[in-house]
């Protein structure tokens, strides 16, 4: 019965030709999709960092990012630091918090049993989200952006703003830095060894605990950055990162949970799909549902995403 209704309503969707042939609208939504996609990609990168090193999904990643964004708020709005400085300070602070969390709540567990660790991250999600609600209350606030909303390039309603450029640029810089870190440095080598074979990494004298702690710190810093990129477009309130987390999870699943390039591609695909579908099919309420649909379709075709390696099952 519900399905019948859904079918009839699908028939009435406004897929008018002028909308589809409106080049400016396409371009405008394309730019918005890129901007959103970049922010999803950056949080997805944080998720991938943790998955690569530990083999589980940190469901508290969004909450850590939320905490980071509030720290940005404290440093910039309350303390009056320039926004870019505030973001860097918040990234460092959230990295320290993440190291503390890893040390206290994650390291005591044997790293090869994933389920308890996933549960612990769900617990952390509850604690951090509630704690943020307690400390900063549920009042909405606005957060300044690092990039201006003015558009250097404009065609009608399609505006390529500095913010879009900045968001994309930030993500590519992060990916580039991560690539260099992983491929060219000793800590990156250790990190990859741990993610490849934990026991062997220990047998090479690699201190697994501190390597994973480093991964957590890095992931949290990237998460904070993604929050600082996305929140200025929305309003700062304690559930703001949850929606972003959903899209980022979708992005990470799409790209493959252990592929950084995949995370970026996935983020952009999710951002674009979301904006284009919502505009051209009038699906504003279904924005989240499109994320599910996209994940489902891709995972059915490729159970480990576009670029994920087919791993031994670890759950």
């Amino acid at each position: 019965m519900l399905f019948c209704r859904l079918a009839t309503t699908l028939g009435t969707f406004d897929i008018s030709l002028d909308k589809l042939s409106d080049g400016e609208l396409w371009l405008a939504q394309f730019f918005r999709g890129l901007s959103d996609g970049a922010t999803y990609a950056s949080l997805a990168l944080a998720l991938v960092m943790i998955y690569k090193s530990t083999g589980f999904i940190n469901f508290a990643q969004g909450s850590l990012a939320l905490l980071g964004v509030y720290l940005v708020y404290v440093f910039s709005v309350e303390q009056g630091l320039p926004i870019a400085v505030a973001v860097v300070c918040a990234m460092v602070a959230s990295a320290l918090v993440a190291m503390f969390i890893e040390r206290t709540f994650i390291r005591p567990f044997p790293p090869n049993n994933v389920l308890p660790l996933v549960i612990v991250t769900l617990g952390l999600l509850l604690i951090i989200d509630s704690a943020v609600g307690i400390v900063w209350q549920f009042r909405t606030r606005s957060l300044p952006s690092m990039f201006s909303d003015s558009a250097p390039i404009q065609w009608g309603i399609a505006r390529l703003t500095w913010r879009t450029i900045g968001n994309l640029g930030a993500v590519f810089v992060v990916v580039g830095l991560l690539y260099v870190l992983m491929a060219r440095t000793k800590i990156g080598l250790a990190f990859r060894a741990v993610s490849s074979n934990l026991e062997s990494a220990q047998l090479m004298g690699i201190r697994v605990g501190s390597t994973l702690g480093f991964g957590w710190a890095l992931a949290a810093a990237i998460g904070t950055l993604s929050g600082a990129l996305v929140v200025p477009d929305l309003l700062l309130e304690p559930s703001v990162m949850l929606r972003v987390l959903i899209f980022s999870l979708a992005a990470a699943a799409l790209g493959g949970l252990d592929s950084m390039v995949g995370a970026v591609l996935g983020g952009l695909v999710v951002g674009l799909t979301r904006n284009l579908l919502v505009t051209f099919l009038d699906l504003s309420e279904l924005a989240l549902a499109t994320a599910v649909a996209v994940i489902l379709v891709v995972l059915l075709a490729r159970p480990t995403g576009f670029l994920g390696t087919v791993r031994r099952e670890r759950v």
Binding site: I246, L249, A253, I295, E313, V315
Partner: peptide, 12 residues
């Protein structure tokens, strides 16, 4: 779709 990927899908 198995393991964490399934967890992720159901979470979403």
């Amino acid at each position: 779709i198995q393991g964490l990927y399934l967890g992720l899908l159901t979470f979403v």
